[in-house]
């Protein structure tokens, strides 16, 4: 369980996160939505301690990650897989080595087992043949998917996705959504998905959290999202050209 309590963060005197609180329960998939620049990526980085809050706390399984030693923090981080917004693939390594990287580092698997596992991960993101290709030679969307394969390679308990489907065509986006949902269902992963894509939200998330101008403006279930009459939230969802209404009707608008 992840608990975020009254988080404040400034950059150069500018408030980026203000009094943000959020609970993420085990096994659920939470979508964080909000406009560009509202602080979604910054919030995500706080969850794994890559940024330190000016005030407020982040608790992972009850442990305040800003109150523990660096070595302890590293142990906490091993429960996480993180997909960064830009992919953050290691450009000195091939795609294969990128995905194999955490396996080589944190497991006792043999090279053969690793090779098999990497192949499985790359196939999950529908890129079984790019193992030998270097990140610089992949398209943006492909980089993202290899990064996703790397994030899930260790089958972490928590996976943080920063815009997993941005820049992907609708069909590939769907595949990724299915993958995220599959991981959540089969492995009981707790997922936090930052996204602009309301279609993703509706198809994978159990709950949504809407950040607006650095504040946690609204949280609730997907059902509540449909029923909400919060003007700012509705404006955001409308702008995504998605019809809020009966889930059954959604299928028609989505196609």
């Amino acid at each position: 369980m992840i608990e975020i309590r009254n988080l404040h963060k400034q950059f150069d005197g500018r408030d980026v996160l203000m009094d943000v609180s959020l609970d993420v329960h085990d096994g659920e998939t939470l979508a964080i939505i909000g406009r560009s620049g509202s602080g979604k990526s910054v919030l995500l980085k706080h969850i794994v301690g890559l940024l330190n809050p000016d005030s407020g706390r982040v608790l992972v399984d009850g442990v305040d990650i800003n109150a523990i030693s660096y070595d302890e923090l590293r142990m906490v981080r091993r429960n996480f897989g993180v997909l960064f917004q830009g992919g953050a693939l290691f450009d000195s390594m091939s795609s294969f080595d990128n995905v194999a990287f955490p396996l080589r580092l944190f497991t006792q698997m043999t090279e053969e087992e690793i090779s098999e596992e990497v192949q499985i991960c790359l196939s999950m993101v529908e890129l079984p043949d790019v193992g030998s290709v270097f990140p610089a030679d992949l398209s943006g969307g492909m980089q993202k998917r290899v990064a996703l394969a790397r994030a899930v390679a260790l089958r972490p308990r928590y996976i943080l996705y920063d815009e997993p489907t941005s820049g992907l065509d609708p069909e590939t986006s769907n595949t990724i959504d299915v993958l995220i949902k599959g991981l959540a269902d089969q492995l009981n992963v707790t997922s936090i998905v930052v996204t602009h894509d309301m279609h993703s939200v509706l198809s994978i998330a159990d709950r949504a959290a809407f950040i607006h101008q650095g504040r946690m403006h609204w949280t609730g279930t997907i059902q509540e999202l449909h029923e909400s009459d919060d003007q700012t939230l509705r404006a955001f969802v409308k702008a995504n050209e998605y019809f809020i209404g009966d889930p059954a009707e959604r299928g028609q608008t989505a196609s």
Binding site: R74, R77, Q85, F101, P102
Partner: peptide, 21 residues
């Protein structure tokens, strides 16, 4: 240049997030 690029493209964050020093 190597480390600077890794920093600005979040590769260093990625290493840290994996639990690596």
């Amino acid at each position: 240049a190597e480390l600077g690029t890794m920093r600005v493209t979040e590769q260093i964050d990625a290493l840290e997030a994996m639990g690596l020093n």
